[in-house]
Every structure is written in C-alpha cells, then in structure tokens.
C-alpha cells in the first residue's frame, strides 16, 4: 500500500435526527432520544469538530423532513461544513436544503431507486455537494447495499455501486457499516479498505467508533482521511479534543482549535 498522504484528517460528527431529537440508533435501528441536536452540534463546533452531518432518520420512511429548522438554527452559529441527508428525492429537495444553508447533501434510497438523480444533482449544483450515502451490510462474502436506514435489501453489491456512483458524478462517499453502527466495537475495516481501493473520491467512514484506538486501526489499514463519529461523542465517551490529541500523538495530522 502506498504511503498515507500528509493531509489533515477530517473528524466529523454524525447526528441522527428523528423529528427534532438527536437519536442514536444501533445498527441503524432503535431510537434512543438524546436531546436537542442544535445544542449537541454547537458543542461539537466549539470543541473543534471539522464537519457536521445531519441525517434525518425517518424522512425516507414517512416521506417528510423536520430538518429545516435544525439547519437554519445551526448555520447561524456553526461555521464549519454541514452535510444533510435523509429523504432527499429530487433536485428540488436539494435546492431547498442548500438554500437554507447546507453545504453538501447526501442521498441513499432515492439514488438507488433512480441512479440518474446523482447525475442530475451533480450537474445542477456541482459534484462537490453530491455525497452518496451507502448503508452496507455483509451477507456471505460480499457487502450489500441497503436503503431506508438499513431496512431494505437491494441486492446491489457495494463495490459495484461505488463505481457506478462515481461514474454518475458523486463527489464523496459516506459509507456506514450497518453491522458496526452503534456497537462501539470498531469500524468495519475490511469494508472501508475495499471501498478505498476502488474509489477515486473521498470516503467518510461511519459506524463503530468507540474509542481512539478504533480510529488508529482504520487509519493504519486504509488511506482514508475522514471519520464520522456518533456514539463516542454523543455519550461523551471521549471528547473531540481528546480524540484529536490521541490522533496527534500517533502522528496523524489534525486541525487543532485554540480557544
């Protein structure tokens, strides 16, 4: 494997939302309510998070979105990139979400149903804001794409879907391991490593981070730069400062925010 580049890592907070609550599912299921997502997001911003992802967990199931007010509030006080997804089905939906202040959007279910949506969105707004979210689960020896928050099988192979997404104009991949999500037992290194080998665009790895060692393990075995953290932050297992300090001590480059 070629040497890891000298770029700075992106440590990203993943906030799953149901209605106006921050929730933390396990394997994308179950709905433990944790509190006000704007309060959590602002706290993470102040502690030095590099980016924030808001994922609306019920939007695609019930075909509605509660996210707008949360995004509007967030953009008044938070000055790092904000990525939003969940229930986005059309170019019109994207326009609305970007207009109220999101920087990037991610699409999962609607893109699987209609892959051309990736092309339409990246053509209209640029591939830099078109993130393809992939919910991956290992069945037998391959990873399968799931939709609707891990509820529905698609029988699509994750690696094939990655190639197709890139061809269609995706600017970034947000890959969640359904098996590892919420378990705090470490990232799915095999999944991310295989994805990394075939991807020419940046990958955000999501699902399973429970401590700093899990981050080192993934970073040492892949060349990705971006990690999404959920439980570890929401349950205050470790602060962003602590995780970044640990990463720095392992000689990874991170952005340090001085107060």
């Amino acid at each position: 494997m070629a040497q890891r580049s000298n770029n700075s890592l992106r440590i990203i907070a993943r906030l799953d939302i149901k209605n106006n609550y921050l929730i933390k599912p396990i394997q994308l299921e179950g709905l433990r309510k944790l509190g006000n997502p704007n309060e959590y997001a602002l706290k993470y911003y102040k502690e030095g998070i590099d980016e924030i992802i808001f994922s609306d967990n019920v939007a695609s199931l019930y075909k509605r979105t509660y996210l707008e007010e949360i995004i509007l509030n967030a953009t008044k006080k938070i000055f790092v990139p904000i990525t939003v997804g969940g229930g986005i089905k059309s170019v019109k939906d994207v326009e609305r979400i970007l207009r109220i202040g999101a920087d990037k959007i991610f699409v999962n279910t609607a893109a699987v149903d209609n892959p051309n949506l990736i092309k339409e969105i990246s053509k209209e707004f640029g591939s830099q804001c078109m993130v393809v979210s992939i919910e991956a689960k290992k069945n037998d020896d391959t990873w399968e794409v799931y939709t609707n928050n891990g509820r529905e099988r698609t029988f699509k192979n994750v690696l094939d879907w990655i190639k197709e997404s890139i061809q269609l104009g995706a600017g970034e991949l947000f890959i969640t391991s359904i098996d590892k999500d919420g378990t705090k037992k470490g990232f799915d290194i095999e999944l991310i490593s295989n994805a990394n080998k075939i991807s020419s665009i940046p990958i955000i790895a999501s699902g399973g981070a429970g401590n700093s060692q899990h981050c080192f393990d993934l970073l040492n075995k892949t060349k990705i730069n971006s990690l999404a953290l959920g439980s570890i932050l929401h349950y205050n297992i470790a602060s962003i400062k602590k995780i970044k300090k640990d990463l720095m001590e392992e000689n990874f480059k991170v952005r340090i925010v001085n107060e």
């Binding site: 580049s5 700075s8 590099d50 970034e172 020419s200």
Partner: peptide
C-alpha cells in the same frame, strides 16, 4: 495520480 479529487479538507 492516486490523490482523491475533489480535494475536500483543511489546509
């Protein structure tokens, strides 16, 4: 050639 494009990150 192996660099990811777009470049997304902090410098």
């Amino acid at each position: 050639s192996e660099a990811e494009i777009p470049h997304i990150g902090w410098c």
